[in-house]
Nucleic acid binder design. Sequence first.
DNA 1: CGACGTATTGACTCGGCTCAAAACCTGTGG
DNA 2: CCACAGGTTTTGAGCCGAGTCAATACGTCG
Lengths: 250, 250
Amino acid sequence: MLKNKHQLALLELLHQSELFSHVDDKSLEPIINNSHRISCGKNKYINFESYKSEYCHIVEQGEVMLSRVTNDGDTYVIDVVNRGCVFGITCILEDGPDSQMLVETIRPTVLWRIPLNILRKIMAQNLNFTENLLQMEIRTRLVQDVEIEHRTVQNAPQRIACFLLIQCAFIKESPVTINLPYNKKLIAAKLGIRQETFSRALKTIKKETGTKVTGSKLIIEDIDALKLFVCEHCSLNYPCQHSLSGGRIY
Amino acid sequence: MLKNKHQLALLELLHQSELFSHVDDKSLEPIINNSHRISCGKNKYINFESYKSEYCHIVEQGEVMLSRVTNDGDTYVIDVVNRGCVFGITCILEDGPDSQMLVETIRPTVLWRIPLNILRKIMAQNLNFTENLLQMEIRTRLVQDVEIEHRTVQNAPQRIACFLLIQCAFIKESPVTINLPYNKKLIAAKLGIRQETFSRALKTIKKETGTKVTGSKLIIEDIDALKLFVCEHCSLNYPCQHSLSGGRIY
DNA sequence: CGACGTATTGACTCGGCTCAAAACCTGTGG
DNA sequence: CCACAGGTTTTGAGCCGAGTCAATACGTCG
């Protein structure tokens, strides 16, 4: 089967993504042939109108915000995701509930719309895929569990510090230089705090842990000080594997 | 195979539970024969020492609190569960992360310890079971999602009111009389607030919605007033199915 | 009846929110 | 290269919800 360059990019994406990495090329074929490529600029809404969806999406490039909107207009940011992330898979099983997410690009983005019934066929034939999906679902649930814990027992500076530790992943030696992955208002929203509070809390972190901040660039002089600042107030131990490893699905 | 009365009770429990209800008796046989019955009083810890568990549990009767403990001793209540609930199934797949829950009975309780490798065998043979597990895992994750939303956008009286609405399930006509399922301190903990705040917030609900409170008995005079009080501040619509229907797993 | 656990109330503190203003950045066009 | 506009971030002042600690009231079970 002849493939164009977009389809080849999709194939590579599927190979790299955690959910599809163990599926053989033959089974991926129907996905390639039936998915729809969406390319759009920043601040666009995807799939907003349809709640009970027959599609899921995978991000090829760019960045996407997943959020929920209450009936009176408040929003809560579920997560901000990029290349390789799958969302909308919640309703892969018939008669399951849907997730009612609002999906908005925060920079120019390419993503693919995959019909769920294609995935259902793969499930029926491939126990590996189903188990992999289950594994990722479990992991996502655990991360959320920890998220609730943090919102219950941690204050704003601690939550931000935890976010920073996750940004510098498994790096062990100080100093570490990192760039914030998106703007501060969005990070704040993801952590469930206001940007003003974020700004002030960052100053607290600066003072307490000797971290340097210039714009969106941070220099963590002493990573152990950061760990001391936050990891005692958590049920996990650094490096908290399943918070770090990607591969969450929504 | 001759079964004793405890084993018969387990069989009945499995039949009624959402996770196992579609599994045929022949496949349930190994569960019956290899599970261990645990009967204990209130305020006992179950399975505390072993994090990376080879067992899951199902509650036959009584009530159990699932919680997490941070390194500095703070606790957060994940859920309070009773008959039919399965927990510890998080590590059903090898090399997955464990959930590190603290499990404590809050009244005299009977539960069964089921070896996970027995369930793995059922998974390998029974796609229905695996899909059912996946479905429940997805539903649990969605409930948690809504939980995070509520902790972000709702205040204490609203969260309590939501809890009350769930208690009276699908009942549509006022007035409704309900009994709180366990003591107020624990309800408060489950909602992520202090018992003093709970007490004061309940008074607010009384004033705002005309609900009557005497001890652990509540009379909701006007269920629409309660809905008005809380459901606008939520992304779901009453009756919010997947918050209500049981069958969460942990 | 007394004792112990549970629940409520009061007084106080404090973290994070709100609203408003100022400062800073970045890109654009003259 | 500068000026300006728009967006983002920081700072300030004040408020309010929920936490804390301590005292009191209530319930229930011996």
